[in-house]
């Protein structure tokens, strides 16, 4: 299909669909994660902005944007709303998903709460289904230490297949290492190979039947396995977003089929 995206390039598309100013041709970093993991604290720390951080879920409803310079390169950072998943069950989830999926940040930093890793990994796994360019930031390790919880980051890195940094953003701990990993992924010095979730046999078979056809239709713009899964569960919000970001006519038929 004749997508705007393909014809005009990433930067121009981001500008058009997500209101990025024109000179923003710098690398884009998205901060994503569950509510209350300290994304806004990290955002403030990186950008020197003073977006208010409160301790209640839902504080960052729309993404906010800032920038910082690391080793002479200017990065744009986007603070996405905190959500439990990316399955687009709410506006926040849709905002976060659409940004990762369509604006294609050069790195998505998934900020996770070290004191509650299991719940947060659910979100990490979902992000890794959409994009390879993921860095996991295990935040709040000072809280975890206080609660005598230990996260083995090396093992986590191996099991997830993506770089992992542990930080305590409120006291600035671990930030240089995080930025180092981020810049390496941005400039392809480090290529994350995210582990894939294995679904049950029936789903996997269905995906393998559908995926080649998704590639045929959409090219390599979006992660074909992920799109196939969404098609299989009949996710109408993805179709809506495709329509919003990639133009209307192409997708009218899709809508009809799903209605």
């Amino acid at each position: 299909m004749g997508l705007t995206y393909q014809s005009t390039g990433t930067a121009a598309f981001r500008e058009e669909a997500f209101n990025f100013s024109a000179d923003d041709k710098q690398p884009v970093i998205a901060l994503a994660g569950n509510p209350n993991t300290g994304k806004s604290t990290l955002f403030n720390l990186l950008t020197g902005l003073r977006q208010h951080t409160g301790n209640w879920p839902g504080k960052t409803v729309l993404q906010s944007k800032g920038s910082f310079i690391h080793q002479g390169i200017k990065y744009t950072v986007v603070d996405l709303p905190g959500t439990y998943s990316l399955l687009a069950n709410s506006i926040e989830e849709q905002v976060a998903r659409d940004f990762i999926c369509f604006a294609k940040p050069d790195v998505t930093v998934v900020v996770v709460d070290a004191t509650c890793l299991e719940r947060n990994l659910n979100f990490v796994l979902q992000v890794m289904e959409i994009t390879n360019k993921v860095v996991v930031c295990v935040n709040l390790i000072d809280e975890a230490r206080r609660k005598k919880i230990q996260v083995h980051t090396d093992k986590l890195r191996k099991m997830l297949g993506v770089p992992v940094a542990s930080t305590a953003a409120n006291i600035g701990e671990g930030i240089p290492k995080l930025l180092d990993l981020v810049s390496k992924v941005v400039f392809d010095k480090l290529k994350p190979k995210p582990v894939q979730i294995k679904y049950d046999k029936e789903i996997e078979e269905a995906v393998s039947k559908l995926e080649p056809k998704v590639i045929e239709a959409l090219g390599s713009e979006l992660n074909s396995r992920w799109v196939a899964l969404r098609l299989l569960e009949g996710d109408t919000t993805l179709i809506q977003s495709l329509e919003n970001y990639y133009g209307k006519q192409h997708l009218q038929t899709l809508q009809e089929v799903l209605a």
């Binding site: 299991e118 230990q150 979730i197 294995k198």
Partner: peptide
């Protein structure tokens, strides 16, 4: 489908968390 997908994701998360997190008292 959604149930089964979410279920698999959570199971994966559970098993990764189980082998990377240790807590003491």
């Amino acid at each position: 489908m959604r149930d089964r997908i979410v279920n698999s994701i959570y199971q994966t998360a559970e098993s990764i968390a189980a082998s990377t997190v240790s807590t003491s008292g």
